[in-house]
Structure formats: structure tokens, C-alpha cells
Nucleic acid binder design. Sequence first.
DNA 1: ACGTCCCATGTAACCGGTTACATTCGACAC
DNA 2: GTGTCGAATGTAACCGGTTACATGGGACGT
Lengths: 367, 367
Amino acid sequence: MATTIRQVAAAAGVSIATASRALSGSDAVVASTKQRVLEVAQRLDYLPSRLGRSLATGTTGNVGVILPDVTNPFYTEFLAELESALGARDIGVLVGDSHETPELERRLIQRMATQVDQLVLASSRLDDGDVAQASARLPVLLANRMLGAETPAPATLRQVTIDVEPGFREAVHHLRELGHAAITYIDGPPQSWSGRQKARVLETVCGELSMPLTTVQLARPDFGGGRDAGARVLEGAPNTTAIIAFNDQVALGLLSALRERGLDVPGDVSVVGCDDSLPEGMAWPALTTVDSSSRMLGARAAAAILEPGAPQPGSVPTRLIVRASTGRSHTAGIANVAGREAKRIESASAPPPVEKRSVSRPHPPHH
Amino acid sequence: MATTIRQVAAAAGVSIATASRALSGSDAVVASTKQRVLEVAQRLDYLPSRLGRSLATGTTGNVGVILPDVTNPFYTEFLAELESALGARDIGVLVGDSHETPELERRLIQRMATQVDQLVLASSRLDDGDVAQASARLPVLLANRMLGAETPAPATLRQVTIDVEPGFREAVHHLRELGHAAITYIDGPPQSWSGRQKARVLETVCGELSMPLTTVQLARPDFGGGRDAGARVLEGAPNTTAIIAFNDQVALGLLSALRERGLDVPGDVSVVGCDDSLPEGMAWPALTTVDSSSRMLGARAAAAILEPGAPQPGSVPTRLIVRASTGRSHTAGIANVAGREAKRIESASAPPPVEKRSVSRPHPPHH
DNA sequence: ACGTCCCATGTAACCGGTTACATTCGACAC
DNA sequence: GTGTCGAATGTAACCGGTTACATGGGACGT
């Protein structure tokens, strides 16, 4: 059994109250006694029980963090930032993966509710009512999500968000200036609040500019989802020249689908991502993206937790970062590839481009 | 304040002992009473305190998981698997990121020690002594790490590992059969046990086959690290034709560095990754890799935790998955690219390959 | 009718801390 | 010398559960 404060007190020849005071820093306890208690504690390898302390003080020193998918870099970076900032203040993090489902999320909340001081729900898939209910039990911080205007926000509910408006507006204007006539948006999962925000901005801006907007829904906002969506878009709408993706992972999957079909980015299709989450060189060509930073969101969340009295924090602004995946469209879109392909094959002598050759080589299925 | 069991007991007209029995499932309490207690609990929205329960029972229902980097997909997948399996049994997960440093890891252990039943240290950066010390305090599960043979393993210490031997052996033989004369290994961080394992196997096998082996050390085993290492290798040893990377992220970075310099994979250089962690299409060309699965490691870790009595689990086996990033070397190595480049430009008429053109286009620095 | 036994329930101690309040003791003023 | 005051320390209640043990009453056997 681990050593308790009573053992320390006994060994130091003081009462547990005195031992407690000596150990929990500087209360009114004379220096010599304090010294003695600390020495004994050290010698007995005493480590105060967080459980005992929590029960007595009513504060646990932990926060719970619930994410839709721990595997997704967006949340992973959010979590990394949050954990670091809280850890520096010796606050522990209980983490839960809701696998994008409200049921699991509710269950995780139940499990965490009595052992954390506060809950952080990132991109919560709960409906407004459930969120309100949770925040009736303990303070809740919504990250990347806001309650609808009609739901009265409880006093214990705070929200940190990313304002995607400027970044997505810029993206549409950028594509338009490059000569693209229409835009396809690959949206996130239907429960995603941020996905709805992005869609809403795109609708507005495309409306203003009289550009047609096509939206494609996605089940999982990851690489595989992006690949699937890419394939669907290419088949359903071969004239597409400009695609905006829900996030960088989806954009990456999209790039992969395009490359596999021999399409050039940005020659044939321009692609815009979101999050600016990729290290340099990860995307090919380098991805034009909206810097909807989850790290910054994590930092804001940490700040909101560490300064409970602070005013409702504003939302993180965004902007467009132009790199190499967007450009002037020099074909009439995807439909033209077949023709160009034929032309290339005609001009026999030159070695076929390496990339093309690799495309056709079959390789074993993954997993 | 949250409702407690005493309030439930009072409202149901029973003692707290009876209430506790009724609530904690099926003890010897008559059906009608049990029914009544449960109804009252429901009505009062009662949620039993994990803290109280933990203190009373001496078991918390939580495990602590410490990772060197929550942002690294290897650990992220490990964590996802572990969290899912434990969550299904209503076990909570406290997570900590050691940022690859022993100091932080020790601090995290201190914080977690009194509020978890067990600790999972993934690729622990602690030395053997510190690990032994931690496992004197509470049960510890080492994942992807083993204590040295000379350190006596405490009874509360278990280990789950990946046996990289077969996979890496296969990789070397595979490369040899493709005609590669020498191998370069891009190793992980120096504190990494699994890195040392991989290096050791490569040394052995290359020794057996009399193939020269060059090892390059890496600070951070991620995409950026792989890119840097790639650049170093290309400059220092231009004749390199076969590279094995510590993990898939490093391999991805390497591919990026090679592509940026106009090198063809596998025409000029063959690349082997490790982990099989990439979704289909993520690497271009599809990456030949050793399936050192962190998901499976996570599953084993979960099993070891859920079945405490089970025998010391064996290590996860590995094998080589051959895809498109390895092939017969048709140049004498990197050094020849300059010459080939010149030759291409000579044969004027054919359009330069798309990828090549993109390489030379400058784009703004990332971040 | 009485003793025995068992089952449902209650009482109270306990887990490991914190802290309000009580107690003790020395210093100082008169 | 004695009363007062305050600082250092001790006593005990409390946080919210669990559980060993005590208690009481009904069923059953003789």
C-alpha cells in the first residue's frame, strides 16, 4: 500500500492536520516543524493522493476532453496544445473518443462528469439540448461549435470557435480571379457544426458572385473520405475545375484521387484545403489552404480553462494561404483529359512520364 | 451541488447501505426495494461519484497512458485502439504527452500515479531504473519497449512489443533481390528502444549478406525529420539506391525530399517504410513497408490490461508488404540524375513531364 | 409454542485527504 | 502574579461512496 499522510504525521510526531498544512505549502506552521515533516515525507516516498484531495476539496485538477476522432490530426493537434498548456499547470487530461457518435459522447460525459472539474467538447456531435444538460452538471467548454441562437446558453457554458468566414470568402474570390466559373465543396459529416459554417459562407459568397456551388457530403472527414468523394465528383461532374475541401486530410485524399486518374493539379483542377495542418512537402503540389488552426483553438481553450473569470473569448480568425494547388484553369475541366491523353500517346518517341507509368502498375490492395 | 447517495437513500426511505447495494447492481436486496431506489435515483438524476467510489474501493477505473508525442500517428492509432477497448469496459483514460523527454514523463507519472489503476508507457524514454521505480508504485505496462536483460523486472511490470525482426529481415532480402548493393537506414531518436531493435536487425542481416549499411540518426521521427534526413542523405551519399525508414512518416518525408530533387521512386531510389500506417493512396508511389502495426499493439495492450491474470503476451509479429516504392535500380543511383536531366532537355519537342515543371516553380514558405 | 436460522436491512468504520474549530502555551502588559 | 491575546498545533467532522458486522423479524421444524 502507498504511504498516507497519517503515516507521515506519525513518523514526524505531529498530527495529520499539521502534516497536511506542512505539505500543502505555506500555511501557519513553524519552519522547523515544516522542515521535519517534509523530510519524513521525502524519506517515506510520500505522494499525496489526488483522490483524497479531490474528495475533500471538491476540485479534481483534471479536465475531460472529448473528441470525435483521436486519429484525426485536427483534433490531435488541438489536444496536443491543450494538454501541454494544462500539464504545465499540473492539470490532468482525461480523453475520450466519441467516434463521431452522440451515444458514445453521452456515455463519455457520464464517465467523466464526477472526476473532472470541467469538460471540453471538441466539435461535439450532441444536439443543443444534450449540451445544455451536460453544462447543467459541470462547466463545459465547447470548442469548434456553438449553440443555436434559440438555445439559452447556461452560465457554465463557454465556447471557443474558429471564424471561417474571412478565409473561405478569400478562397472563393481567389478561385474566381483565376478564372474558375463554378465551385464544388466537399463538406464534412452532417453533424459537424463547422462544416455547416463553411457551407453557409460558401453559399453566401458564391451567391454574391453568382457562381454555381455544388456540395458533396462526406461520411468521415479523413483521407479515405476525400478519396471517395474525389472519385464521386470526377464521375458525376467531369467539368469540375475548382474544389474546396472540408479539411486538409480530405484535400489530400482528393489530390490522391485526382493523381490516380492522371489529372494535373492545378492545371486541370484547383484544390483548396482547410486547417493548414500539413507539414511542408506533405501535399503535392503544396496545398492552398485556409489556416483554420486547431493548435490555436487548443491554445484558446487552454486559456479559457486557466482563466475562468476571463470574458467570453473571441473566435480565431482565418485567412487564405495561397500555395501551388490552385491556378488558372488551362483546360475546360476534367472532361478534356481523355483527349489530351490520346494526344500524348500519339507522340510516340518520348518516354512516357514516370508518374503516368506508375499509375497503371497494379499493386496489392492496402490491408 | 450534485445529488449524493445519501439524498437518494433519504428520498427512498432506506439506509445508505441499502441504497448503495441497490445501485451497485445485484446484491442481496429485495426486488421491490431495489426498484424503488432505482426510481428515486433516476428521478433525482443521480450519478455516482467515481471519486468516492475509487477512494472506498481502492480501484479507480482509470488507466494512465503516456506517449512521447500525441501528434504522431503511430501513437495516435495506438491510443485510439486502447481507448476504444478500455472505454467499452467503462475504463477511463488519462493521457499525457512527454514530448520525448524523461523529465516530463516522470512528472506525468507522479500526477497520474494516485488516480489510475495502471500505467501504460508507450515507447518510454525513461531509463530502466526509473521504469522499475514506477512499477514499484503501481502496475506498469510497457508498450514498444523492453527492459534490458540485466534489470530485474518487477512482478507488476509487463511488456507488449512488436517483433520487427522478420519484417526487417524480409525488407533487406527484398532489396537485395532487386539488385541493391547497399542500404541506408534512417533511424529514430536515440532514446527509442524500437529504433535500436530495428538498427540491430539491419546490422545482423546486412552482416549476413555482406551488404554495407549506413545509419542516419534522426531527432524527431516525423514527416519533417524524414525530409531533413532525406536531404542529408542525398547530399552526403549521392549513390544511395535503397533507404529504409524508421517509420512511414519518415518515409513520407523522404519521398517528399526525393521528389523535390526530381528523383524517381523506385527508378532511382527504393524506399521502405515501417508501420503500414498510411491509408491507401497517401504515399506516392504506394509505400513498401513493414507492417509494424501500432493498432495491434494497442489491442494487445488493452488485452493485457483487461486480463490481468493472462500470461505475458508475446510480441506482435511483422512482415514486409511490397508495394510500389521499391524496384530494380535502373540508374547507378542519385548521382546520375543530373546527366539524365540534361538528356531530356535535349529531346526538345515532347512536353516536359508535368511533375518536373511543378518542381521548379517557387512557392511561398510554409508557415 | 419455542428455538433456530437466514435474509433483508441498518449502523458505523473506513478510504486519504482538508479545514473549521478547540486547545494549549508562551509572551507581554498591567 | 494574573489576565489577555495570538500563534502553533491538535481534534474531529466532512467529502461520497463501500462493506464488515450488528440487528431484527419471518419462516420453518419439532
